[in-house]
Design a binder for these strands. Structure first.
Lengths: 338, 338
DNA sequence: GACTGGCACTCGCGCAAGCAGAGTGCCAGT
DNA sequence: ACTGGCACTCTGCTTGCGCGAGTGCCAGTC
């Protein structure tokens, strides 16, 4: 078990390293934080911390830098989430309030988050699976061609083209539209399959195959297309990694291009609580020298999607976590209003 | 006027420099291209080319590299667009054919373009102003709340919420929907304002203000929201700028984040022909050391939007132009089919 | 007049050596 | 348990030097 002072030393190392980006030595530590002990003592503590794997030295006789394990201990036990100041909160709210539709909300959120944290921001669109249906619309484009438009309670719109096996009459289509909406409007997506399964039976024999194909497209859209969308921003902030350059930045950019990787990243933490993944805790190895701070957001009590930031393991955790949490909260409010 | 051989020398310099990324000297040139003359002669030619501003040397006694002016001459007079090979064409078509909706088409196009050119790809969504209306849908969400859904002939969907000044009846709404569609379906967006301006007069006095507010939202969506959307990809390719790093890459990433900048960039060339902007020809100074190759694409003869790539001025122009042109052509086909 | 071969000159780059500074580990002393 | 002191290690920076690539010029040749 580490003594209280050693924890303080670790905290000081993390704080200094985050600030200066340079390995921190015993002398500098005692000067900048009044720990009440001499450098020599701190050296002993550092030696112990290194023994335990919380810090490391890049090369003999340079200062120490925190390891992933050190950062982990820091976020778990040594740091408090730094709340946003009053003006900051107001600015967030103002900025998000100007949004005109869902795309705009997401776009603004990304910008905001990137700006606040000065890191790469990732925002997932409200998930289909956790949303409810607001309306289903069917439009006849041609005799045997229908467009399905699905509107969610979070304002998201999905559309699909359907080629019907047989022409479908305008009346039949209106009937189907009405029945469909009366059954599914306001229901959660996950419940929809059960609610519509006996729908074809209400129609004439000749229309059943068409109805069935419309329904199957609907279900596909709900299930198969659960592939979530997301938006990223602030990639220019990656260049602040002035240090070890192409090495770090390239795999990160590649990871950011792979929506699958990002979605998995955000999806990993089951609940909507704030999650911090540090360095090698990320499965995808391109992100091994970055940390990911993510949290769920939603209009009600439950999360409909996640958002977060990706940055160097050497990041300002309290500040970042505070910003992420605050933004998530306000986005949730905005969604609830619209 | 430059002699024929000097033009050949310039062409050789561009080709070699693009290949090796290193200043090219007179000796190397004569070895790799059989110009039929000695290094000394080439030196004289180079001296003349430098005099004219087509090439420059980074420092005395290093080889020469092309200037922006040199590249300009190269693309204008010395290079032919390199057509895609048969297998490449087939691969492009196959890849794009798998798309399920407009978002997917755009996303796939971006990936494809980035992969083919190994550069940053930018694809603009089909423009609203140059599209036609496929359908307008009005949905009553609450007594005085209507959602407007606008579907374009290119498959793009825009939605807007409208808070009405007074509750609107289901019948009135249906009437409005029918009248609206009969007037605007199939018409170009630019014609819509004229077509609907006298529409409120067809309604009872009490509904007119509501109808007017719906119409004004529609017009807003068409005009004000002409702000185009676009998608970018392949940013990881920027790291191949191994040379002069943060200097170049940061402003480029910043430019890519600014949709406004990009849209202006694509929009500058009026017609849909292929455009190449080299280095300082780009107004935005963050892109002064990059070139932009763009071209319009569209379902018919006319372009509905642009796409292109952003890369270092030292890029393979013939290859890049070939890829951009081919992709634009196939995307156009795909859009025409859907 | 255009091209060529030869030659002296210039510079950037890579490498080794030397120096200063920061930081460590250890040890004896309080 | 903490401290002050000391020897040691290692990096980064600077200096100096030689190599090689490339140039410009000039006299000579077709």
């Amino acid at each position: 078990m580490l003594s209280e002072r050693r924890l303080q030393v670790l905290r000081a190392i993390v704080q200094d390293y985050v600030g200066t980006e340079e390995p921190v030595g015993s002398k500098a530590l005692t000067e900048r934080h009044n720990l009440g002990v001499s450098p020599a003592t701190v050296r002993n503590d550092m030696s112990a911390l290194e023994e335990e794997g919380y810090i490391a030295q890049p090369h003999t006789s340079a200062g120490r830098i925190p390891t992933d394990k050190g950062y982990r201990l820091f976020v778990d036990r040594l740091a408090d989430v730094k709340p946003m100041t009053q003006p900051e909160r107001r600015a967030i709210q103002n900025f998000l309030d100007g949004a005109v539709d869902l795309d705009d909300v997401v776009a603004r959120t990304v910008r905001l988050l990137a700006q606040l944290t000065r890191q790469v921001a990732v925002v997932q669109y409200p998930s289909l699976t956790r949303s409810a249906v607001r309306h289903v619309e069917l439009l006849a484009l041609a005799p045997a061609r229908v467009m399905l438009v699905l509107i969610t309670d979070t304002g998201r719109v999905e559309q699909r083209l359907i080629d019907c096996p047989a022409p479908i009459g305008e009346n039949t289509l209106a009937d189907l539209r009405a029945r469909l909406n009366s059954r599914v409007t306001g229901r959660r997506f996950t419940d929809v399959p059960l609610l519509v399964q006996d729908l074809p039976e209400a129609f004439e024999q000749e229309d059943r195959s068409t109805v069935a194909s419309v329904l199957s497209t609907l279900l596909e859209t709900l299930v198969e297309r659960t592939e979530e969308r997301l938006m990223i921003g602030g990639t220019a902030n990656l260049t602040r990694f002035t240090h070890d350059f192409p090495l770090t930045i390239q795999p990160v950019l590649e990871a950011l291009e792979e929506q699958v990787v990002l979605l998995k990243l955000l999806g990993e933490a089951q609940d909507s609580a704030m999650t911090v993944r540090i360095g090698h805790e990320n499965e995808y190895e391109g992100l091994n020298s970055t940390s990911v701070v993510s949290v769920g957001y939603g209009s009600g009590g439950e999360a409909v999607a996640k958002l977060g930031v990706v940055g160097p393991t050497r990041m300002d955790y309290p500040g970042t976590m505070g910003a992420v949490r605050a933004v998530a909260r306000y986005v949730g409010q905005i969604l609830a209003e619209s």
